[in-house]
Amino acid sequence: MSETDTAASVLYEVKDHIATITLNRPERRNALNFDAYDRLERALRRSVTDADVRCVIVTGADPAFCSGDDVREIMAAPKPKDAAPKSPTVRHQPTPAAMAALECDKPLIAAINGAAIGWGMELALYADIRIASDKAKFSEMFIKRGLVCDVGGFYRLPSIVGPAKAAELLFTGDVIDAQEAERIGLVTRTVPHEQLMDEARALAARIAENPPLALRYMKEGIRKGTYGDPRELGGWAIETIRALMQTEDHKEGVASFLEKRPPAFKGR
């Protein structure tokens, strides 16, 4: 992955000890296809091994942060009836990109510049700090596709906004705006869109001024004190998604999205 490869689906750049990872499929609202999932995982892993990096920012190329899975390429792809779907979000272990974010031992800031939907909201949840543009929107819309969320919605969302609010967001798939996200504590602040990256970089610079080893241990302490081990939960979530992707309701959820019509779920 090259910093100068501006055509890549995920960009990686390091400046002043700050790695900026940018989802770069603006024509698809930064929806993740197979290539983007792979590049995102590699970028996050790279930030860990890059000795010059002390803080990481993840963001999207305008107009969106990440609109989730690329439905046409991933969720609507043909799947053998008795085989595990090919989707990188459907495996017998937690999603590799999710684990790369959760295992990143450097402070991770999400600069949410637009829609963070489905797995895009999951990605935002994996960050230690979330800053939102006033154009940002959030939704754990998995229920609308007859699925459950990835490990982020189960593992982090209840700790961030509380179990009852997390349940409301997960059960309804409702879309909330940046102001509501700030009110419930999902993001630490909302700023004018044009100021978002300046705010994120300024915060990252303040963090990067501190001793790297102490930063890593500080992050590990927060993780140990707040969250458990995501692997067992993530494995359960992936197995459940795998089973739900074989249901009629999931297929109806995808078909209704592609056909731009209300779904008709039947509970099978």
Rank of each mutant, 00 (worst) to 15 (best):
P88Y: 07
E13R: 15
E13A: 15
I143Y: 03
Q93D: 10
P85K: 02
V53R: 02
G152Y: 03
V254W: 07
F138K: 01
E209P: 10
G253T: 08
G114E: 04
A136H: 05
F34C: 02
E27K: 06
P263E: 11
R223Y: 12
A98C: 08
G118I: 04
R39D: 14
G173V: 12
V90E: 05
D62I: 06
L244V: 06
N210H: 11
D62P: 10
K137C: 11
V161M: 05
P94V: 04
A97G: 01
A164L: 01
A31H: 09
P230I: 04
R242G: 14
H17T: 01
R28S: 14
T6Q: 12
I129A: 00
T49S: 13
A136L: 08
E239K: 15
L147S: 11
E232I: 14
V90L: 13
I160W: 01
T247R: 03
G185V: 06
A31M: 13
V48M: 12
N30C: 09
G235N: 09
G153T: 02
D5R: 09
L108S: 02
I129F: 06
T240P: 08
V56E: 07
A7K: 11
S87W: 07
I117N: 10
H250F: 15
T6S: 13
E199N: 10
A83V: 05
G114L: 07
G68Q: 04
E3T: 13
L125D: 02
A97M: 14
A214D: 11
L203H: 00
R189Q: 10
G173N: 09
D16K: 01
V254H: 08
D134A: 07
P230E: 03
L186G: 05
R45F: 06
I112F: 04
I129K: 01
V10I: 12
P211N: 10
C66S: 14
W236F: 07
N210S: 12
D177S: 08
Y12I: 00
R268E: 15
N113W: 07
R29S: 13
L108K: 09
Y227F: 15
N113G: 13
I143R: 09
R231E: 13
R72H: 13
A100H: 07
P94K: 02
Y217R: 00
P85N: 03
R28N: 14
A237F: 05
G114T: 06
A264I: 06
L244F: 05
G234M: 08
F34G: 08
A237N: 08
L32V: 04
D134Y: 12
P80L: 14
L102T: 02
L196A: 00
D249P: 01
E252Y: 00
D69M: 10
E220R: 11
Y37M: 02
F257N: 05
K251D: 13
A76Q: 07
R91L: 15
R156H: 01
P212F: 03
V71L: 15
V10D: 09
R231F: 00
A61C: 09
V71I: 15
T22Y: 04
M1C: 06
G221Y: 12
A136W: 05
